[in-house]
Design a protein around this nucleic acid. Structure first.
Lengths: 231, 231
DNA sequence: TGAATTTTTGCGCGGGGTGCAAGAATTGAC
DNA sequence: GTCAATTCTTGCACCCCGCGCAAAAATTCA
């Protein structure tokens, strides 16, 4: 449940020179985990995601069973459900991550720009930043969503999970810096910006970072509005 | 699969005076169906929706099984799946309906206003109009979505089903009257407007028609944009 | 090394959803 | 009204998802 922030990956990680380092890398590629248990857990999780993504790209979502995935990952089917709530979650490697506290704080305090749309943009940018950490797994997940539209609803599942948090963030800001926009609408706006940015990122062949495509999405909304009020 | 347009309901339907009329009304409330078969089918469908909605409001979504629903509706569990693809569809009474051809035609031809946002608004209004036809069933569905957020993803499921059609509509218009906005973004915008309007309608206690709350949603977007470009 | 804790795994079960073929009901022709 | 064609329902068998439970295996800590 705790957001397994993959910050460690990019961190300096000065050599805590143990012979276990090699094992850790062999298992996973992610160094500097606290213990054998944690490393194995992480390794299994990634193995399951990889297995799921491989199998689905090859045979299609419906032809792949949890049994196949767990077999390919070398664990029992029952164990699969210790790691994921559903097959779809494994395919997408649902990492969550949540919003960083500092970003939330700034937003609630009426920042960073003081303009609501732009500040929502900063929230979405923070969300998209987690996509960049996810290496190829996120990209593969994107491709799979494209290939299997049925997976699209997981975006909403994600929203549902964070709906409350996001709603509270908006309410907190509203209390300090009143605005008229419905919380409902803003929540959907977050989803819209996420989807649009990720789609554009995908169309660009995953060049650069996902958040690079956010400004364009926002600009399109501004254009849309400008074109409507003053044709 | 064919959208069971509820146009017949409003149609003049000159009396094809059979004694069966009473039976039809007893079964359903909707007069003037073509044959016994069609009427029974409609009656069963509505019975299943009512059963599902009743049971779910009473016991919660997860405590209700397809078996219960079909038992309450007086059909076999197997028959349930002749009418709905999933339990959720029955609960929401997924009626679809699709977009009326004339509305689509006008939109593709660059109408009705020539301003993209406003014209998207007309599409959403047409979609919302079908919600008004649905009497209480739609309202109940809305309440249930509120009560069981897990049902929310059916909005997206709906989108998935029509994504292609909607995308094509946008592309068709783009061919005649070029614009820059991503099809992706517009599709999500439709969803955003739908959700926001329905939510507002619900907050208003279902007073008036769902589409009445659409302009406010659009206005909020315009405000958002205006506040961002010129604080 | 041995006890405590965590995790995996096998087992069983309820429920969703589908293909199939038999049988019941509706329809249309006569 | 009767009978054949069509359509629909239903029971049956089946696979898969997802979870609770308890035994067994692995890891941690002393």
């Amino acid at each position: 449940m705790v957001p397994t922030s993959s910050r460690e990956t990019a961190a300096p990680a000065a050599a805590d020179g143990l012979g276990l380092r090699e094992l850790a890398d062999a298992l996973d590629g992610t160094p500097a985990e606290r213990g054998l248990r944690e490393r194995k857990k992480r390794a299994r999780r990634l193995a399951l995601i990889d297995a799921a993504q491989h199998l689905v790209t090859e045979h299609g979502l419906d032809a792949v069973t949890v049994e196949m995935i767990s077999a390919r990952a070398g664990v029992s089917p029952r164990t699969f459900f210790n790691y994921f709530e559903s097959k779809d979650d494994a395919v997408l490697g649902a990492d969550d991550g949540g919003l960083p506290e500092d970003v939330v704080g700034t937003f609630v305090d009426g920042g960073p720009t003081g303009r609501l749309l732009s500040d929502v943009q900063s929230l979405v940018a923070a969300l998209l930043a987690t996509a960049d950490e996810g290496h190829d797994r996120v990209k593969k997940a994107m491709d799979l969503v494209q290939q299997e539209p049925r997976l699209l609803h997981r975006h909403l599942a994600w929203l549902e999970r964070h709906q409350k948090q996001i709603g509270e963030i908006f309410e907190a800001r509203r209390a300090l810096h009143p605005f008229d926009t419905d919380t409902e609408l803003l929540t959907m706006l977050v989803l819209l910006l996420l989807r649009t940015s990720l789609a554009a990122w995908e169309r660009a062949g995953y060049a650069g970072r996902a958040a690079d495509h956010l400004p364009s999405a926002v600009a399109q909304i501004l254009d849309l509005a400008a074109g409507d009020v003053a044709p």
